[in-house]
Design a protein around this nucleic acid. Structure first.
Length: 274
DNA sequence: CGGTGGACCTGCTGGC
DNA sequence: TGCCAGCAGGTCCACC
């Protein structure tokens, strides 16, 4: 489900709901997510701690606990988090329930169970196996055209696969990869080692612009994404190519095509994108 | 060795 | 109506 704009939207919703409250209990209904959830560790290290911050790194939410613990949550494709008064009954696919002070609870629901939840410490966060190989945040200054060009040197990978590689840049998933390349006017199949500096400038700018605008629209609800308050995103109305196979491109009236790369759908305009 | 395909899961849609 | 194939926003890892 969520790419960077959706996770950031969820983070912004969770922050005022969680910071200053304490985790008072944990219930694990289904530990078998992508990795098996360590119920004992959560009970031992999360319970009776105050939440001090809600951060994001790539598509991971980082819930900081006093004084030095970090709850790492990934939503996979279909994960949802919600905060509210205790539910009357558990819903299908409610896997984790964190009791909070002020008679609230945080629920993690995930139909496909591709998500994860693990607890670690501040000191171990950056060396955590899921964190240590991550590339730069696309909305921070270390993400530049020169950096991309350097990473691409000598590689024959298609640009679409390159942009979705989290060791290159984090947060760009399947929807936004197609949108970015449309904006940059570059075909998803182009080999990265053959792109020129002007292409990298366009790609870098497009990634920034698409993700920033999508955050402003509170993410994309293509089928079932909702934020922590249950609200859908708006950015699906701004999508220019994703999911629009056979429709006419607004720029040049040619039909948008769908191809499959690395097992995922890519959409592009054969007229605008070269 | 870089890079891809399949695997992990469930649910929904569209065609027959 | 029912069944089945194909598809879905992520990530890891065996294998080419």
């Amino acid at each position: 489900m969520p790419e960077l704009p959706e996770v950031e939207t969820i983070r912004r919703g969770l922050e005022p709901q969680l910071v200053g409250r304490a985790i008072t209990g944990v219930r694990v209904r289904q530990p078998r997510l992508r990795d098996v959830v360590d119920t004992r560790a959560l009970q031992r290290e999360a319970v009776d701690r105050a939440i001090t911050a809600v951060d994001r790194r790539a598509k991971y939410l980082l819930i900081r606990l006093h004084p030095d613990r970090v709850l790492i949550i990934h939503l996979g494709m279909t994960g949802r988090l919600s905060v509210g008064p205790p539910a009357q009954e558990d819903a299908t696919h409610d896997h984790l329930i964190f009791d909070l002070s002020d008679d609230l609870e945080l629920r993690y629901n995930d139909a496909r169970r591709f998500g994860m939840c693990v607890i670690t410490t501040d000191a171990d966060l950056s060396s955590h196996p899921r964190m240590q190989h991550l590339g730069p945040e696309p909305l921070l200054p270390s993400f530049t055209a020169d950096y991309l060009r350097e990473r691409a040197r000598g590689s024959r990978r298609p640009i679409k696969n390159f942009l979705m590689d989290a060791t290159v840049v984090v947060g760009v998933g399947n929807i936004y990869a197609s949108e970015c390349l449309y904006l940059a006017r570059i075909r998803p199949t182009r080999e990265v080692g053959r792109l020129r500096p002007m292409h990298w400038t366009r790609i870098c700018d497009a990634v920034r612009q698409v993700l920033q605008t999508a955050i402003e629209h509170r993410g994309t609800t293509f089928s079932d994404y909702v934020d922590s308050e249950g609200r859908e995103g708006d950015f699906q109305h701004q999508l220019l190519v994703y999911g629009r196979e056979g429709e006419v491109c607004a720029q040049d009236r040619r039909r948008i095509v769908r191809i499959v790369q690395a097992g995922r759908s890519s959409y592009y305009c054969p007229g605008c994108q070269r």
